[in-house]
Design a protein around this nucleic acid. Structure first.
Lengths: 339, 339
DNA sequence: CTGAAAGCGCTTACAG
DNA sequence: CTGAAAGCGCTTACAG
């Protein structure tokens, strides 16, 4: 579907000019704050523009060679606090700099990612902030190179194709949780996750978790699904499945806090005491803000900091200020009352 | 700050044309799927476009009079599940229709709202989906009228300035909760909220809640703040304040579930038994997905449905299909284990 | 200090 | 079936 909007925007620069008794050129200068224009003319033009409700047609403006102030931000989904926190921090930093953000969601789908990037590029943005953690299509990369659009990547610091790359080390996160489980003396451990084929960062964490356990002779039982939501419900289903087959499991690490909560529900309903009989740990520390009594053991980091750094990265690409091309965000293990 | 991107996009229609041995005009037709072009030419042009990595310059395209496929969606914040659910449903409906969404956040701030609307309009979108519930500036309305851009409003069905308006009746929501509290025989009731000056829909709910209680001779004690977050922390602070002054309060209705959880925490820490000694209720049913044991009494509705209807509204504005100008979303009281 | 000219990359409407 | 012309509303670079 496509929509016809030819009737829009009647007021042009020369309309304003006519009302103010000057040329379109002068109006353009006044509105952009360029050139030496007498205060008196300035005011007259401004008044005329206000009266007519003039809004610059960015389409024309950018096409003519003006500089863009639009920054496209692509996140997997706005429904995840991790990304909406990052987004929020980006906005907070970019707006005062006079930059406008346009947001898109990819749902971890490389095809949608391509479409969104292409949409963004079609309005010739100043820069793009893209999330990593997916297998981006070759066409998408090609497009980006072709347009020579500056890109800051967030969340993935392994595939560092872009100008600046900011995020946690997912391998370290997996290792950190494995060390915690090992320090508790667990011998039989499970991992629960979903959509690991799409989310390569989550897969990286799971692999590092497994490797670190194996190195100490502890085997990991994976219970994952590609078709379940990465929410509490998915966690419930998979936890039931895991406990049914391996009732003697001692600890479970989940892809995220939401799924871990699903694990908590199943434990509660089956009368399994956590952490006494079963340890449960999540990732991303997004659930504790909603807790009354349960405080999950999880891995946390400053999402706001990632967003702020990404936005600063965008600015630095133009001010010429030098910043690190790869910026690793520190992570921390928060021990709650579930391990 | 502003960014120079003059070096971008080298490949034009005529570049593709040269490679394919046809005019720019023919390329344009092939790419848009218009006109009668022999299959052989079509393929040659397509191949050339692919080879060069051509992407339509929407700036030029729209300026020349093409129809836009961009829909701007403005929500207060992506950090609230209510809005990110609506957003998600909008995307799900709009993408298959070939429309692209551009998202912005207003933070309930009328000045930011104006800026965002203005940004959206500057790229001449096909339509806009705007959240209501704030005191929109007169300039913003003026801009919208001037551009004759179709607008679907969500969340507010009281101020119905726009083409289509979709949302719950906030007055009914307040009344519904009052009736629940009355049915429990409560005589001393509190209300906890924040930023009611910005969020006029929340204010409407609070007022309706108060009015319905008063009509039955029950007084309401309001404990609100304009400078606290509408999160659990804000709920904690205000609940402490309320209970310190009115220890004999029997039930508290909160602006949202997040704040209500703050109330639950305070009750838990003070050893107040919920629901036996104190009833607690929220609004928007966003917390129960995170619960292990606590299930808040709250008011729910289908946020996905609101998003779907909003997107369908956008489409209907162009297909000419007639839809109701005001669509009231049904609400339901969900009784958990906190009242 | 001010504006006429040229051009950004497309699409519409029209001529061949 | 195909393309040369005109124009969308701006800005850049330059002349007065």
């Amino acid at each position: 579907m496509t929509i016809n909007n030819k009737t829009n925007q009647k007021v042009t620069l020369s309309d304003v000019g006519k009302l103010a008794g000057v040329s379109a050129m002068t109006v353009s200068k006044v509105l952009r704050g360029t050139g030496r224009i007498p205060e008196e003319t300035r005011k007259r033009v401004q008044a005329a523009a206000n009266e007519l409700g003039y809004v610059t047609n960015q389409l024309a403006s950018l096409l003519a060679g003006a500089s863009s102030n639009m920054v496209g931000v692509l996140i997997p989904t706005a429904r995840d606090v991790v990304y909406s926190d990052i987004l929020s921090a980006i906005n907070a930093e970019l707006r005062p700099a006079g930059l406008r953000t346009f947001i898109g969601e990819s749902y971890f789908d490389p095809a949608v990612d391509y479409e969104q990037v292409s949409s963004f590029l079609s309005i010739r943005p100043a820069a793009l902030i893209l999330h990593g953690g997916i297998e981006r299509k070759a066409e998408t990369i090609k497009l980006l190179k072709k347009q020579a659009c500056p890109v800051v990547q967030i969340w993935d610091v392994e595939n560092t194709d872009f100008n600046i790359n900011i995020g946690p080390s997912h391998a370290d996160a997996g290792k950190l949780m494995a060390e915690h489980f090992l320090s508790l003396g667990l011998k039989k451990v499970g991992y629960v996750g979903a959509e690991l084929e799409l989310d390569i960062c989550a897969a990286q964490r799971a692999n590092a978790f497994e490797d670190a356990l194996k190195a100490q002779g502890v085997d990991l039982i994976r219970c994952v699904a590609e078709d379940l939501p990465r929410q509490a419900e998915g966690g419930e289903v998979l936890t039931r499945r895991l406990l049914d087959h391996y009732p003697d499991i001692q600890g479970i690490h989940y892809l995220n806090d939401a799924m871990a909560l699903g694990g908590m529900r199943v434990s509660y309903e089956r009368g399994i005491s956590v952490p006494d009989s079963l340890k449960i740990a999540g990732f991303n520390a997004t659930s504790n803000v909603h807790s009354v009594r349960t405080k999950l053991t999880t891995i946390n980091m400053s999402y706001l900091d990632i967003g702020t750094k990404a936005a600063k990265g965008v600015v630095s690409l133009y001010t010429g200020e030098s910043v690190d091309r790869v910026q690793i965000e520190p992570i921390v293990l928060e021990r709650g009352n579930t391990t």
